[in-house]
């Protein structure tokens, strides 16, 4: 029983990781209707940025805030400079742009920061929680942060005029433009926010998996699966999806099929769910007019 609880908690902790990156994917999808394959590498790069700031002696939360700010600005810049020119191109062309970004970030990070793994500090302390022998304070803290980001996002889109404008720009660019919303600016802002959320994800992930240029390679697939499982247009779905993926994958690996095929089986399961709920667990079915 103890081992089972352990696996469960370890799955939840992993799920929190997937959920935080999935949130960034959902963010960009909501504002641009693209899935950004480079999201993981952008988050990794942001984390290196935070690491550099910390090495320079900044206190954690200052570095944290600075990283969010810089990542957001960089995200907007990337949208303006790299994505805008291919806005009208076939969507696959945009996908290729993402892939190009992915390899560039990965390669440059390896070049600048080397591939030696780096320790990234946790703001929540090390060791184990006082009355819970299964979870570290960081795992607990990062789950809380993920949920906090979720609530903030929800409030932002639901209650602020800017959030409303962004939703409008994504949902119906033409009408949005007619009612005076600067659609281009909203798209850039969406990228900026996604980059900032990615940076949070990176800073929460790095203390667990160590910081290295390939840190996000494995996580991106799970985040991708989590976002789609929950419904790509639904932040809550992405978070739930993340936890489900983390727990299912861990328990399957430990008790059912062993580790050799756990990735495969986890993916098959997710796809099986999608076959019956093609829009994801929480997604809206898209209705198109012919």
């Amino acid at each position: 029983m103890e081992a089972f609880l352990h696996q469960l908690v370890s799955g939840l902790a992993a799920g929190g990781i997937y959920a935080s990156l999935a949130l960034a994917l959902v963010m960009i999808y909501q504002s641009t209707h693209h899935i950004n394959f480079a999201q993981g590498e952008m988050a990794m790069f942001s984390t290196y940025l935070a690491w550099t700031l910390l090495q320079a002696g900044l206190p954690y939360w200052v570095a944290f805030a600075a990283t969010l700010g810089i990542s957001c600005a960089a995200g907007m810049l990337i949208e303006r400079v790299l994505i805008r020119p291919v806005e009208k191109a076939p969507v696959l062309t945009v996908v290729i742009t993402f892939i190009a970004l992915l390899v560039i970030f990965n390669s440059v990070a390896g070049w600048v920061f080397t591939h030696t793994v780096k320790v990234f500090p946790s703001p929540f302390g090390a060791g184990l929680l006082p009355r819970n022998p299964f979870m570290s304070p960081h795992e607990f803290g990062s789950i809380v942060v993920t949920l906090a980001v979720l609530v903030l996002l929800y409030a932002f889109f639901r209650f602020t005029p800017l959030g409303l404008a962004m939703r409008a720009a994504a949902l119906n660019p033409v009408s949005a433009r007619l009612s005076g919303i600067r659609v281009g600016r909203m798209l850039a802002l969406g990228w900026g926010l996604a980059a900032a959320i990615g940076a949070v994800a990176g800073m929460m992930v790095a203390p667990v998996v160590y910081l290295d240029p390939n840190m996000m390679a494995g996580i991106l697939l799970y985040a991708f699966a989590a976002a789609l499982l929950g419904g790509i247009d639904n932040p809550l779905g992405a978070v739930v999806g993340g936890f489900v993926v983390g727990v299912v994958e861990n328990l399957m690996g430990a008790y059912v099929i062993g580790t050799e095929l756990k990735l495969t089986v986890a993916l098959v399961l997710i796809l099986g769910v999608l076959l019956f709920k093609p829009a994801g667990l929480f997604g809206r079915a898209v209705v198109t007019r012919v």
Partner: peptide
Amino acid sequence: SAPWAIYGAILL
């Protein structure tokens, strides 16, 4: 040092 960065840049 960073062949993938070149690859990505050419791709872009």
